[in-house]
Computed example of a mutant assay.
Amino acid sequence: MSVRSGRRWNHNIHYHSRILGAVPDGAKRALDVGCGEGMLARELRQAVPYVTGIDLHEPSIGQARAYPGDIDYIVGDFLTHPFEPGSFDVVASVATLHHMDAADGLARMSELLRPGGVLAVVGLARSELPGDLPRDLAGIVVGQVHRAFKGLWKQTSPTVWPPPVTYRQMRALSAEMLPGSQYRRHLLLRYSVIWRKPREHGASAG
């Protein structure tokens, strides 16, 4: 943890604001996929009354449960856990989608969203060289500056490297599976996808 800021920092935490800024007004239920030790889930709980975090890594869930708060933490695989379809207003995920087949992950997230709900993903993808090299070098330099001032918090959850899908492939997949989604590639070696699930035809706008 950074002594100067008093707040944890790493490349994933840096983009939590992308998730939190996408939470729709009036959201009541949120799911944090691959929640780890629960930092994003706790932040979501500031805006959403009912938050569930799910992760396959039992030690991380144990750490999450050690924090005070009324968040429901589950050890399990969100692809197969018996959540009811359409039961969440927000489905969020940070640095998790590359641990699974990306198409399967996006399809399941979409299924769990109610009509009008928001999917918000921050993820890692693989660079393509030499074309991505200038952007990657810039990201490394800026990341080092952040680290010098804020420190670097290292997560204890399992990691996967390299990511199986490239940024270009992730952008194309998002456009195909989530029409109208907002894909953005970020400087600090991350991308984000924000998507609002269309309301059912003929449904009330309320």
Rank of each mutant, 00 (worst) to 15 (best):
137 L>Y: 09
115 P>D: 08
73 Y>D: 02
92 A>V: 05
187 L>E: 04
205 A>G: 08
188 L>V: 11
172 A>K: 10
83 F>C: 05
108 R>G: 02
186 H>N: 07
171 R>V: 05
56 L>Y: 10
106 L>M: 10
183 Y>C: 04
164 P>V: 12
182 Q>N: 14
158 P>I: 13
79 L>E: 10
81 H>K: 08
170 M>W: 05
129 L>V: 10
38 G>P: 02
4 R>Y: 14
96 T>H: 00
179 P>H: 13
91 V>I: 12
164 P>Q: 15
125 A>Q: 03
7 R>I: 08
28 K>C: 11
103 A>N: 03
55 D>Y: 09
47 A>D: 07
27 A>H: 01
191 Y>V: 04
192 S>M: 10
128 E>I: 15
33 V>I: 15
24 P>G: 07
87 S>D: 08
93 S>K: 01
81 H>T: 08
177 M>T: 04
54 I>D: 01
28 K>F: 08
16 H>C: 06
185 R>I: 11
158 P>K: 11
84 E>R: 10
134 P>W: 12
5 S>C: 13
78 F>M: 08
138 A>V: 13
151 G>Y: 07
74 I>T: 03
32 D>S: 06
22 A>S: 14
25 D>F: 11
195 W>I: 02
12 N>F: 05
2 S>L: 11
141 V>W: 13
133 L>P: 02
206 G>D: 14
104 D>W: 10
66 A>R: 09
57 H>N: 15
37 E>M: 07
40 L>G: 02
199 R>P: 03
32 D>F: 04
191 Y>T: 02
30 A>K: 01
46 Q>C: 14
77 D>P: 03
108 R>F: 08
109 M>A: 06
195 W>P: 00
17 S>M: 08
13 I>C: 01
166 T>E: 06
50 Y>A: 12
63 Q>L: 15
22 A>I: 04
167 Y>E: 02
172 A>C: 08
14 H>G: 04
42 R>W: 09
119 L>H: 03
60 S>P: 00
183 Y>K: 02
155 Q>R: 05
13 I>R: 01
180 G>Y: 10
169 Q>I: 07
137 L>G: 04
19 I>Q: 00
85 P>H: 13
4 R>D: 06
155 Q>C: 05
88 F>S: 00
131 G>Y: 13
71 I>H: 00
37 E>T: 04
128 E>V: 15
107 A>W: 03
72 D>H: 15
193 V>M: 07
174 S>Q: 05
187 L>I: 13
144 Q>P: 01
32 D>L: 07
26 G>Q: 09
183 Y>N: 00
128 E>L: 14
65 R>E: 13
163 P>M: 14
115 P>M: 13
174 S>R: 00
80 T>Y: 12
22 A>R: 00
12 N>Y: 04
159 T>N: 06
186 H>C: 06
99 H>K: 02
138 A>F: 12
14 H>R: 12
95 A>Y: 01
110 S>A: 15
174 S>M: 06
157 S>Y: 14
21 G>R: 09
78 F>I: 07
147 R>H: 11
169 Q>M: 12
93 S>H: 03
122 V>Q: 01
132 D>L: 14
23 V>E: 02
83 F>Y: 09
116 G>S: 12
145 V>Y: 10
87 S>I: 09
43 E>T: 06
153 W>F: 15
35 C>M: 04
